[in-house]
């Protein structure tokens, strides 16, 4: 990362409504290649809404602008965003019964790379990434997220991150519900992606993850807004003091 690098991802004046309710109330962000931003905030403050709507979830009405690699992608459908190098690791990954992890990933990798990946080459790559994430190779043949434990689902999200090699990834609580070993593995995956120049925005509740992943910037998100941004020390402060001292009223509407 260098000072002159241009953001791989940025958004400006993003508002999101769900029906009549405004959930995200003006968010500006700029993430450089290989940079990791953490976003922390109380339950229900709108973090997932922000992440899903940035990815293009059709149920959310987003206004403002979203740019990927300097191009305006605001109005693009999620698959088009994905093909241009954007990724979202879901807080609650959905099961797709009957579709194996391997066949799903091969289709996804082919779609994102814009060419069919030969089966053998793909298998080799998949097995190598699974090994990196200390996953049993048997997972390749299981149906996507179908009956997976919470921790297994999160690992598979990271597996997808490593296979799809996006330019920018939103990771929504990928650290939640993990035991300490799984947490280390997931952190390893995130760090590997960062060293490949993937810019990332991590939604997290815990300082715990930040012991293994060192964010460049920490944002505090409350009631649909970023109320404070700072360095890693901000995460530690939140861990100690909670969010109360940052109530929008208390900070006088930053």
């Amino acid at each position: 990362m260098n000072e002159n690098a241009r953001p791989v991802f940025s958004c400006n004046g993003v508002h999101v409504r769900i029906g009549e309710k405004e959930v995200v109330k003006g968010v500006d962000l700029a993430v450089l290649p290989g940079e990791v931003h953490a976003i922390m905030g109380p339950n229900g403050s709108g973090k997932s809404t922000l992440a899903n709507s940035l990815m293009g979830h059709p149920a959310y009405a987003l206004t403002g602008t979203v740019e990927l690699g300097g191009e305006d992608v605001t109005a693009l459908p999620p698959d088009e965003k994905a093909r241009r190098g954007m990724f979202l690791a879901f807080q609650y990954p959905v099961a797709v019964p009957g579709v194996t992890v391997a066949s799903f990933l091969r289709a996804a990798v082919s779609a994102v790379r814009g060419a069919d990946v030969p089966v053998r080459e793909f298998r080799k790559e998949l097995l190598a990434r699974m090994e990196d994430l200390e996953m049993d190779p048997g997972f390749a043949g299981r149906y996507l997220n179908d009956g997976f434990s919470g921790g297994e689902k999160k690992r598979v999200e990271i597996l997808q991150l490593l296979m799809l090699k996006p330019r920018f990834a939103l990771l929504d609580e990928t650290d939640s519900g993990l035991d300490i070993d799984a947490l280390k593995v997931v952190a390893k995956g995130i760090n590997a992606a960062a060293s490949n120049d993937t810019g990332m925005l991590l939604v997290t509740h815990y300082q715990r993850l930040l012991n293994y992943v060192h964010p460049h910037v920490v944002h505090v998100f409350m009631d649909g807004r970023i109320v404070r941004s700072g360095g890693p020390e901000l995460a530690l402060e939140l861990e100690e003091r909670g969010y109360d001292w940052l109530e929008p009223a208390a900070v006088g509407g930053v």
């Binding site: 698959d79 797709v96 779609a111």
Partner: peptide, 20 residues
Amino acid sequence: FYLRSRGLKDDQARLMIVNG
């Protein structure tokens, strides 16, 4: 949405769900 966020087009995603 999950499948489309992985680059699969709408019809491709639907077909994958049906095949599953």
